[in-house]
Write a protein that binds this DNA or RNA. Structure first.
Lengths: 211, 211
DNA sequence: CTCTCTGTACCAACTGGTCAGTACAGATGA
DNA sequence: TCATCTGTACTGACCAGTTGGTACAGAGAG
């Protein structure tokens, strides 16, 4: 399917890009207003897609929700989490600190608005649909897994002391980041986020072997 | 107004207890399903109060929300936060650790369900109504204030080392607890909470003066 | 003491609006 | 000319809030 332009300059979307237009509008709206507060009609108005058209491409609003969630998850893994830990030779603690900074940076870019897309959906939907909860739990679990692996590797290499229990530390780091983002959203003050990241780095330094 | 009982054993509520019945049912439902997901009709069915009656006692659903929130805040301050820090002579770090344990205990009691009532409302409503956001921000701020004070006191007494920046540490502790509760709700696994609390204690030990 | 009057507490039925989802006809292209 | 798309108009459920009225306790007047 190709994208064409009529004489009036209005874009006529082919099949695949209609789906993309919906996803783009929906992910923007859902990020700002939340899933439940985002009416399907708003998504359609924003994306310029008709209702019948929407239901041709999606089975339901719930399916749209899953698609958005998958998109958020993929984007988080590819654009935020994995790049920091790409180098298997890099120093683990430095990579983790770099990851903190990256998360801090996203909050700054967003002016503390919107919070964490994953955390938001987690709180909003985990009670409602088991499917959402499971999917969200899996990404948090991938996140913790990544941190656990890098910590374990560092421990083997002697970069991190033996008293570090990688699973527990990973859980704690994920929780703290999510909490920091929540508190930042609430106070609308980036200083909170900065302080939390600074304290997380201080906490990490606990595991540096004594020189 | 008094509470009376008819010959059939059905309670006829006077003014004040109707309000209480509504608040009780609403706070239970809202804690489980969230504010937006709780229909007014559900609250009314649960509490056995008619709709007109509800609107006699409350201006709107939003006002009910405020009342619930005030109740949650008061309960948190009186029953969870303040008792831990009541003794001005107590050792600060021990009080903070005790507070962690108390929060952990509430999660255990609730079987990891429901998360933190304050955090839930924060995430759900802070974008929607500025009034909710402000009220929530104020309680988190009281919470951080309490921790800041106790840390500062400890610092003066030499119980906590000078490198501790009380405000930053307080922010971090609050954020971490909230994040831990969120992650616990999502994974439905109390071990996550236990590990996070353990790591928070380890972090705290950073500030104990070296012997 | 009794009869009206008044304000509080309460109820059932309804309204108006929103929203997810459906029906279907028209367009478009192989 | 058949399958793939797309827009419009509709449906039914849900839900916050309204309305018009009842029940009844207590106060005051006769």
């Amino acid at each position: 399917m190709t994208i064409k332009t009529t004489e009036s300059g209005v874009k006529v979307r082919g099949g695949r890009s209609t789906r993309e237009a919906i996803l783009e509008a929906a992910s923007r709206l859902i990020h700002v207003h939340g899933y439940n507060q985002t009416a399907l009609d708003d998504v359609l108005r924003e994306s310029g897609v008709g209702k019948g058209n929407f239901y041709y491409h999606f089975k339901s609003k719930e399916e749209l929700g899953y698609a958005i969630l998958d998109q958020i998850i993929a984007s988080f893994l590819e654009r935020t989490l994995e790049p920091c830990f790409a180098d298997p030779e890099g120093r683990a603690l430095a990579q983790i600190r770099c990851f903190f900074d990256r998360v801090l940076e996203t909050q700054r870019e967003r002016n503390c608005v919107g919070g964490c897309p994953l955390g938001n959906m987690a709180l909003e939907l985990s009670d409602v649909h088991e499917g959402f909860r499971a999917r969200l739990a899996s990404v948090f679990s991938a996140w913790r897994e990544r941190l656990t692996l890098v910590l374990r590797r560092a421990q083997r290499g002697g970069e991190v002391s033996g008293e570090c229990r990688p699973e527990a530390v990973a859980d704690f780091l994920v929780a703290s980041l999510e909490g920091a983002i929540l508190l930042t959203k609430l106070t609308k003050d980036i200083v909170v986020m900065e302080q939390c990241v600074a304290e997380m780095k201080r906490y990490l330094s606990l595991f540096e072997p004594r020189t």
